[in-house]
């Protein structure tokens, strides 16, 4: 499928918005650093430290997490052929967080070239959950919204209770794990950025490479098969890549819900379902959304910080209800 001028313009606009949001987010915080001063190069040493050591890594982490969540939302919506799918709603985020909590509880934290074993445990938890929910939700070759939501919620509840159980058994870390679970980028540093950057780029490239296949899969698996798509292999690759993206986000920021639902939905209304364009647009849109919400999270009640997951849920949950109300969901 071809990419039209309108679509390229929207990608460019999103890119400019991303740069603007990064600049504005850099200047906002407990210490306000006027943008003009930054451009003129008149920053004090303290201001430089705040920008390079604290704000920039956190903003980049927000961008990566937003991109990962939103892209994995598009992927799950494509595989499940259902706009209500999102890593949070189908329980992949809970699975990844269980992986992380178990690793923390049993002291299985190792580092290899800056990559923490937590990322691996998050990935394992995420991918097992996605396969589980997929096979539970599938009835007669289709995945109806009702069974998708019910099996996602059931699995999610089960895994969340396990996470709580692990937390209580290990009450020493209770507050830390609790805060992380609500979804927060407060611990974001260059180390986290380096840890998830390669995995997120890899995940995105796999998915983007399969954009055409993803388009055809939307016509149904039988039709995709007749059009020469190796359905099972492609679906497996997509499930792995989608879980990788979502669980990397969870590994560094806990559970941030609804980003993967809201961003692809809005962009699909504007751009249509062609994944060649929907995927990059959603990646950019997710990055922008999370930079903006995280900036709100750390400034609105400053010096107290809110977990950003609270803000995305406060905006996202009503949106979810609105989608359910409409029900005649347009793709």
């Amino acid at each position: 499928m071809e990419i039209k001028v309108k679509e390229i313009s929207i990608i460019i606009i999103l890119f400019i918005l991303l740069i603007l949001s990064i600049i504005v987010a850099l200047s906002l915080g407990t210490v306000k650093i006027p943008i003009i001063t930054g451009i003129k190069g008149g920053l004090t040493t303290i201001e430089q430290t705040i920008i390079y050591k604290i704000r920039l890594p956190r903003i980049l982490l927000a961008a990566l997490v937003g991109m990962a969540l939103s892209t994995s939302g598009v992927v799950f919506q494509g595989i499940f052929k259902n706009v209500m799918a999102d890593p949070y709603i189908i329980g992949v985020s809970s699975g990844a967080s269980l992986g992380v909590s178990l690793a923390i509880n049993f002291g299985l934290i190792y580092y290899w070239r800056g990559i923490s074993s937590l990322a691996l445990f998050a990935f394992l938890g995420g991918i097992i959950t996605s396969f589980l929910v997929y096979s539970l939700a599938k009835t007669k070759g289709r995945i109806p919204t009702s069974t998708l939501l019910l099996s996602g919620i059931a699995v999610s509840f089960f895994l969340s209770s396990l996470v709580s159980l692990v937390m209580i058994l290990d009450s020493g870390n209770l507050q830390k794990v609790f805060y992380w679970l609500m979804g927060s980028l407060a611990n974001g540093s260059w180390q986290e950025v380096k840890m998830i950057l390669p995995a997120i780029i890899l995940g995105f490239l796999i998915v983007y490479f399969l954009a055409d296949n993803l388009n055809i899969l939307l016509l149904g698996e039988e039709t995709a098969y007749y059009l020469g798509v190796e359905v099972e292999r492609i679906k497996l690759l997509l499930l792995v890549a989608g879980s990788l993206l979502a669980s990397m986000a969870v590994a560094v920021s806990g559970i941030i819900g609804f980003v993967g639902l809201v961003v692809p939905h809005v962009l699909r209304l504007i751009l249509g379902p062609n994944h060649r364009i929907l995927l990059p647009a959603s990646a950019l849109g997710g990055a922008i959304l999370l930079i903006v919400t995280d900036t709100i999270a750390r400034t609105i009640l400053a010096p107290t910080e809110l977990p950003v997951g609270i803000i995305t849920a406060l905006c996202g949950a009503p949106f979810f209800i609105y989608l359910l109300q409409k029900r005649k969901v347009k793709f």
């Binding site: 499928m1 052929k81 490479f209 399969l210 954009a211 055409d212 296949n213 388009n215 055809i216 939307l218 016509l219 149904g220 039988e222 039709t223 007749y226 059009l227 020469g228 798509v229 249509g272 379902p273 062609n274 347009k330 793709f331």
Partner: peptide, 28 residues
């Protein structure tokens, strides 16, 4: 051409027909 032809996505007619060329195209 199978019997059930439900398409839940807002593709254009042209996009749908173009997908028939998939067997002849490499990725991208």
């Amino acid at each position: 051409l199978p019997q059930s032809t439900e398409i839940g996505f807002e593709f254009s007619v042209k996009e749908i027909v173009e997908m028939g060329r998939h067997p002849y195209l490499e990725n991208w």
